[in-house]
Design a binder for these strands. Sequence first.
DNA 1: AAGTGATCATAG
DNA 2: CTATGATCACTT
Length: 224
Amino acid sequence: MNIRSRSPKSINELMQRAQDMAGLTLGQLASLHNIAVPRDLRRDKGWVGQLIEHELGALAGSKPEQDFLHLGVELKTIPIDVNGKPLETTYVTVAPLVNIQGLTWEQSLVYHKLQRVLWVPVEGMRDKPIAQRRIGMPILWTPSEDEFAMIRQDWEEIMELIALGKVEQITARHGEVLQLRPKGANSRSVTQSINNEGLISQTNPRGFYLKIPFTQSILNHYFN
DNA sequence: AAGTGATCATAG
DNA sequence: CTATGATCACTT
């Protein structure tokens, strides 16, 4: 670990590093870290996120916590097209499917992770070689009251259905800004859930994702 | 073209 | 398996 890859000690230091990184291509950044650039992301879907994490000094590990716990910041790279529009939904966290009685919004992982998010836009057009894709200006975002209210409403509706044993009936169409979708190795992955009789059963793991129009509005707000 | 459901790599 | 990092790829 060199000096630049140590964890930043303040929000200002983190933002400075993120801003200094803006304008570079993924190829240039990978070169600085002596990391090889994959031809495509089919088998390296988390490659861009990992690279940015290294550069900004995010704490390693797969804990269900914010990337910069000491700063209260979650890092999210977001693929955008030539117009700055997000190309993909944004994964937030896994959804709890059992032992959720009494779980409140304020206690949820979604609420905690979205307290403060450092968005790092990165070109994600599939026809552009990964090494040539450029990193954009970072955006430090904290949801407004209205934004949190929208996310909370979706979260509560989805969690209610899960608690009622209706997880199998939930599709990505539920929720205005936050949706529930599969999140696992494949459709055969299983985890515990509640069935329609209120008993423990098995289902495909799910995760919460922010829909594109919502993240697009966040980016537009800062770019305008 | 947009949106939903499926999938990939890795660490513990 | 769970959780991290997400994008792929098929359907509508």
